[in-house]
């Protein structure tokens, strides 16, 4: 009896789909390490920001002078930054950067970027794009490859937003800018780098939120399972 049910299930074409390896091991492992280190960077970054929640433009800025933006947050000095906030930020930055470098090398040499992230012309017809922009539920067969909007979003995160975070982070370092002054001067100064560091964080947080919403709409369990085990299991999503 049980055997026949299994056989019956095996006969469904989608079972082939469920056997397909959706995400390679490198993509899955780096995805989750990045997730954890991003969360740690975000939390410790908030702790560091609370020590001085004012943003400036140019080289300098202090409480006694004018600001670009006064964030509606309290100045909290003693609790967060004197706890593990600062140490955690730099540890998780190293984890994130080294993981990112490994992912970049893999992406180029395995042709992951060219095959899976580089969009084609067809990805950008209105018929294809408009449902994505309205955040409509993706069709099951779309679980097999990234759509055009997804591809562009991931390319922006990998090749623009994360490099900008690293750049503006290093632009705040008095030691690193002694070797590469342009890390700070390109943006107009150390405080500008700090301000951009903050706003790119906001963009990344919005990306993560939309990403999580889309994963929910596409079938949370199946998609998260795919990112853990690498298998799609689209058949289950049907029912």
């Amino acid at each position: 009896m049980a055997e026949s049910v299994q056989l019956h299930e095996l006969a469904i074409p989608e079972v082939n789909v469920s056997d397909a390896l959706r995400h390679s091991a490198v993509v899955r492992v780096t995805h989750w390490i990045t997730t954890i280190s991003f969360l740690a960077l975000l939390l410790s970054g908030i702790a560091i920001l609370l020590a001085h929640p004012r943003l400036y433009w140019g080289e300098t800025g202090a409480r006694e002078g004018p600001s670009l933006i006064d964030l509606p947050l309290p100045f909290v000095l003693d609790v967060p930054i004197r706890g593990p906030g600062r140490y955690l930020h730099f540890l998780s930055a190293w984890v994130c950067v080294l993981t990112g470098l490994f992912y970049l090398l893999y992406g180029f040499f395995s042709r992951h970027f060219r095959k899976n992230l580089l969009p084609s012309k067809d990805d950008f017809s209105w018929r294809v794009i408009s449902p994505h922009l309205r955040l409509t539920r993706p069709k099951p067969e779309e679980a097999l490859k990234y759509n055009g909007v997804q591809r562009l979003a991931y390319i922006a995160v990998v090749f623009v937003l994360f490099p900008l975070m690293i750049w503006t982070g290093l632009g705040m370092s008095p030691a690193v800018t002694s070797v590469f002054p342009w890390l700070a001067t390109t943006f107009g100064g150390q405080q500008s780098a700090r301000t951009i560091h903050f706003f790119v964080t906001i963009v990344l947080v919005i990306f993560v939120l939309v990403h999580i919403i889309m994963v929910f709409r596409a079938g949370f369990i199946a998609r998260v399972r795919a990112m853990i085990t690498g298998r799609v299991a689209a058949a289950k999503e049907h029912s």
């Binding site: 020590a51 001085h52 004012r54 800025g61 202090a62 600062r86 705040m172 150390q190």
Partner: peptide, 11 residues
């Protein structure tokens, strides 16, 4: 430039 860990700075 002298920057504080907290975030403010001056020259």
């Amino acid at each position: 430039h002298q920057a504080c860990e907290e975030g403010w700075s001056f020259i």
